[in-house]
Amino acid sequence: MDRTIAINVNHLCKTYDSHKAVDDLSFSVYAGEIFGLLGPNGAGKSTTLRTLITLLHPTSGTATIMGHDTVRDADTVRTLIGYVPQERAIDRFLTGREHLQLLGALYHLTTDEATKRINELLKLVDLEDHADRPAKTYSGGMKRKLDIACGLLPNPKILFLDEPTLGLDVQSRLRIWEYVRMLKARGMTVVMTTNYLDEADQLCDRLAIIDGGKIKTLGSPVELKIALGGDIVSLTLKELDRIPSLETELKGRPAIKSVRTTTKGLDIRVESPEKALPAILEAANRLGCSIEFIQYNRPRLDDVFIAHTGRAITESIPETESA
């Protein structure tokens, strides 16, 4: 499949004093996809993001946005991107509308253009009724919506979201996810960092798991889970003596990766349950094995994360752990 590349990161390194925040990162983001940088705090996600939005200069390596270098063509890059920072980057004394008007001027829009776009955006994020109140009266979710409206004001080709739902309640979170999906539907490329596994799983077309400044693995959530060894179908058989014959029958079949005998039945690793389950049931039926119990476990992104970083995402990074 030949897809347009929106972002290209090439051997990117960023060193602070002697600490390597980002260590030889290379990846591409395709136009129109939602790309996630997933990792624990301090993994290098934000450093990577800040480099892409021209706020940091790489120590070595390069990053290009739609073919423009983030250092040499920084100004061109800035016209192509929208940014939603991690912190609630809100001026509490300004109203929602004033935030957008300020940004309108910074993106050099004419007053008419800005007014039109601001009204559209306020409608989009459902802040019309609160647009003329100072932001200090906003709830966390409303601030986040304003943040996103600010990021969308330049009508960017690529939107960067830094931890978009950090600290939000469940409803606001789902709302933000909705927006992100809608933006993708409109053809926008979205790059987001997150340390929520479910967020990455639900939202991202592809994601890179970053830890210690390096990419541990990269792919779509489904690919990553499959790469882990696939889903597991556990069978419990009524007649235990039939287990060996069923094992022989299933081994080597397409869609079945491995079969392992357990005390009461079989653990079958499958590539995709959609193909494997009918085959398993058909084989059991043909051999006259009656199945007492069948259980199917889909590996979660948590399992992928643990497999590649050696720990759960909620655990702190080793340096702080030993401290």
Binding site: R50, I53, T54, L55, D75, R78, T79, I81, Y83, P85, Q86, E87, R88, A89, I90, D91, L103, L106, Y107, H108, C150, P154
Partner: peptide, 18 residues
């Protein structure tokens, strides 16, 4: 700088000294 507003401003195509 502390609340990220500066980063938001600096990610726009403004002259660095504005």
């Amino acid at each position: 700088k502390e609340n990220g507003f500066l980063e938001r401003l600096m990610s726009t195509p403004i002259h660095r000294t504005s």
